[in-house]
């Protein structure tokens, strides 16, 4: 599988990263090299092997479903580039 400039553009769009034409060109080359390395995995027989999710075999812990935190809007908003009246502000989404 080889990655062309269009694929890079599509993936960059999915990842929400603007790329210039020149960057797209360089990235296509680099990503192809990385993929070439990754494709060596095809040589490994993995029939019947379950994909691994976690290296530690443990039951995910559960806790009671109740609120344990909150009431700190100033802390939550303190690092926001823009906020008003207790809300994050973003460019207009709905006309």
């Amino acid at each position: 599988m080889s990655i062309d400039k269009n694929t890079v553009r599509k993936v960059a769009r999915l990842a929400r990263i603007r790329t210039t034409d020149a960057e797209t060109e360089v990235l296509a080359g680099e990503m192809n090299n990385i993929l070439k390395m990754i494709e060596q995995l095809n040589a490994v027989k993995t029939d019947g092997v379950e994909p691994m999710t976690s290296v530690i075999e443990m039951q995910m812990p559960e806790r009671e479903d109740k609120v344990t935190d909150g009431g700190i809007p100033e802390k939550i908003l303190a690092n926001a580039p823009e906020h008003t009246a207790g809300f994050f502000v973003v460019p207009k989404v709905v006309e």
Binding site: V49, P51, M52
Partner: peptide
């Protein structure tokens, strides 16, 4: 595929 190899 990578997650399977990881198991191995």
């Amino acid at each position: 595929k990578a997650r399977r190899v990881r198991k191995l």
